[in-house]
Simulated assay, not measured.
Amino acid sequence: MGVEIERKFLVDHEKWHQADKPNGVHYQQGYILNDDNRTVRVRVTDTHGYITLKGRGTSNMSRTEFEYEIPVADAKALLKEFAKNSTEKIRYCIPFGGFTWEVDEFSGSNEGLIVAEIELNDEQDNFEKPHWITTEVTDDERYLNSNLATRPFKDWH
């Protein structure tokens, strides 16, 4: 069984915009199933498509996850025909301190939200935070991508 262990943090906008970073990748993702216990997500970039199944884990930090690459055309069709709601973002992958930070700059209804995630091998892993990291929001379910698709940042910020 696949398990994803990740922590989420908000990002200081000013420090982030001044930081040296690689080009980002545009993601559109939609949810075919989205309830309190599980999600089925379809994600598309310009060159890749994915379908991901996530379950409720032992904590907000650890969840079951199964992700599979699918043809881009199939992913686009699934988004169009089956996704009930969606989000868009630019993702930047930043190597730092032996880990890769994934920083998402959201657009659309989540414009203004920048969230950084770090995937860990164990919930107890120690890691160094880049200078642009601020508040941890791992336990705040409003920041789950699946929740941002149904209750966007603009509605509660």
Rank of each mutant, 00 (worst) to 15 (best):
A77G: 02
T52L: 08
A116Q: 09
T45Y: 07
T87I: 15
V40M: 14
F127K: 10
V11H: 14
G57D: 08
D122I: 00
A73I: 05
G24N: 13
V3Q: 11
V42L: 07
S107F: 05
D122R: 00
E14L: 15
S62V: 14
R151E: 07
A149M: 05
D104F: 04
Y92H: 14
N145H: 07
G98N: 01
I118C: 03
G57I: 09
V72I: 15
R142Q: 04
T134G: 03
S146E: 11
R63N: 01
R38A: 04
Y27N: 08
G108I: 03
T52F: 08
V72S: 14
T135P: 00
G24M: 11
F99W: 04
E128C: 03
T47I: 07
S86N: 08
K15L: 15
V40D: 02
K129E: 04
E14M: 13
V103G: 10
E4H: 11
T87L: 13
D46R: 14
Y68T: 09
L33G: 00
I5R: 01
G49I: 09
P22F: 01
N121E: 13
S86E: 14
E69S: 06
V25D: 06
R142N: 13
I90Q: 05
F96A: 08
V40W: 01
P152S: 07
S109Q: 13
N60Y: 01
D35L: 02
D36R: 11
D20H: 15
L148N: 10
F96K: 02
K54Y: 11
E105H: 06
E81K: 04
G98W: 00
D35G: 01
Y92K: 14
N60E: 13
G2A: 11
E141D: 09
R56L: 05
V25F: 10
V25K: 14
S109L: 14
T134R: 03
L53W: 07
K21P: 00
N37W: 00
N147W: 04
R91L: 10
F153H: 08
K89V: 05
R91C: 13
R142C: 02
R41E: 11
S59T: 07
I133K: 09
A77E: 08
R56G: 00
E117V: 12
A75R: 10
V25H: 12
Y31C: 06
D122K: 00
D74M: 15
E88G: 13
K76V: 03
V103F: 07
F106E: 02
D20N: 15
A77T: 09
V115F: 07
V72M: 11
H131Y: 01
A116G: 10
H131I: 03
D125G: 01
T150E: 12
P95H: 05
K8S: 13
L120D: 11
E4D: 09
I90H: 02
R38K: 12
M61K: 03
H48V: 04
V42W: 12
F96T: 03
P130F: 06
T58G: 01
T58D: 05
L10T: 12
Y68C: 04
M1G: 12
T138Y: 05
E6N: 06
D46L: 13
E65N: 07
V44S: 15
N85C: 11
A77C: 10
I70G: 06
D140Y: 09
R63P: 00
N110I: 08
Y143H: 08
E69I: 03
A73C: 02
D140W: 07
I133P: 06
D20S: 15
I5T: 14
D12K: 15
G30W: 00
L33D: 05
T150W: 05
E141V: 15
D155A: 00
A73V: 06
V40T: 14
